[in-house]
């Protein structure tokens, strides 16, 4: 479904932009991680690229935000520890972003957003964050 409601477009646009940030961060983080953690980062990078594509189909093509020319992580990613922290923070941020999408969409699109929120909250804990009652 293509949404024309302003609140839905705003929520979906925000989700795409945050997913773009996550993909950049996972790419940078992957360079500092090894073994299973590196594989996890690569796997999540692909998963979040898929999310971006699905969210892009929910709004008109001209409303889809272009990827930013450069990415500046909110906290510098300089080693494995900071890589894990950044991925945990971004995953937790995605919970609220996806909750906003769920609240403004319906049917399969809402179910998709709810599932994304759940996967992000789990991933945040797997990257070392403590669980939260309302992840942010």
């Amino acid at each position: 479904m293509t949404y024309s409601d302003a609140a839905a477009i705003a929520a979906i646009t925000q989700a795409i932009e945050t997913e773009q940030s996550f993909v950049y961060a996972a790419g940078i983080a992957g360079a500092y991680l090894t073994g299973g953690a590196k594989r996890q980062a690569v796997s999540q990078l692909a998963e979040h690229q898929g999310r971006m594509q699905i969210y892009s189909l929910m709004i008109a093509p001209e409303a889809v935000p272009a990827p930013p020319p450069a990415f500046e992580p909110t906290t510098p990613i300089t080693d494995a520890r900071s890589a894990r922290t950044a991925l945990a923070q971004l995953n937790n941020a995605l919970v609220g972003i996806n909750a906003d999408v769920a609240a403004t969409t319906e049917g399969e699109d809402r179910a998709f957003a709810i599932n994304c929120a759940q996967l992000s909250a789990r991933a945040a804990v797997q990257w070392g964050a403590q669980s939260q009652a309302f992840p942010t």
Binding site: V95, G96, N98, A99, A102, A103, A113, I114, A117, Q118, L119, S120, A121, R122, A124, V125, S131, Q132, A133, F134, P135
Partner: peptide, 9 residues
């Protein structure tokens, strides 16, 4: 949705 995510985590 927030609560579902928290419980998944």
């Amino acid at each position: 949705t927030f609560i579902a995510a928290s419980e998944s985590s």
